[in-house]
Amino acid sequence: MAVIKTKGVEKTYNPDKIPVRALKGVDLEIAEGEFTAIVGPSGSGKTTLLNIIGGLDRPTGGYVEVGGEDISQMSDNELIDFRKEHIGFVFQAYNLIPVLTARENVEFVMLLQNRSKAERDARVKELLHAVGLEDKLDKRPSELSGGQQQRVAVARALAPKPTFILADEPTANLDSASTANLLDIMARLNREEHITFVFSTHDQRVIDRARRVVTLVDGVIDKDERRE
């Protein structure tokens, strides 16, 4: 079953002034366990699409279903709770709360979910181990490199066991070694834990690692390739 389904999704910015049609009818289904890259030239609508799938923004046409639920109908507060339970976000940069340590950043959403201390501790250890940062538990973001910060961000996104993870150009600010490292981790989590990843990128090395590549051009899907 598709964890994400968009049907005729449109997005027009500034409908009253100078309208910008960022998405012009996107039909997309992403199944559980996929490792999908959204690619396309700058301004093609990648960020817009990810924001709409993640419930951060609303489409001006069409609808989005996540796990069978139509998120376009939800109120603002319901969406926040929905994101907390079902969607893990990794942004381009500055994902982490600067005043919290790596451990606390990962723990954060679980605290919002009122998970028990034992469960939180176990999960934080497991996840920071999975991203190779078990020795950086008590470091603040400012004491970590960009690549390490993105790995903590991945761990944080995974902490509440979301339905899928959305990452908008997660490697844009990383050097090639860190990029490779982050992709290794994401690919392994996808392969071993069947975590669904949807990410956008410009980077050919990242595109090469994807198992499905959706190309957006001018707000519509131009190509949708699967590789094994």
């Binding site: 709770d81 994101r83 994902n95 709360i97 919002l112």
Partner: peptide, 16 residues
């Protein structure tokens, strides 16, 4: 502002 945006994105309610 950016930090607030991240916090609301990942599930912190506005009142919190």
């Amino acid at each position: 502002e950016y930090e607030f945006g991240v916090l609301i994105s990942i599930g912190l309610q506005r009142w919190q």
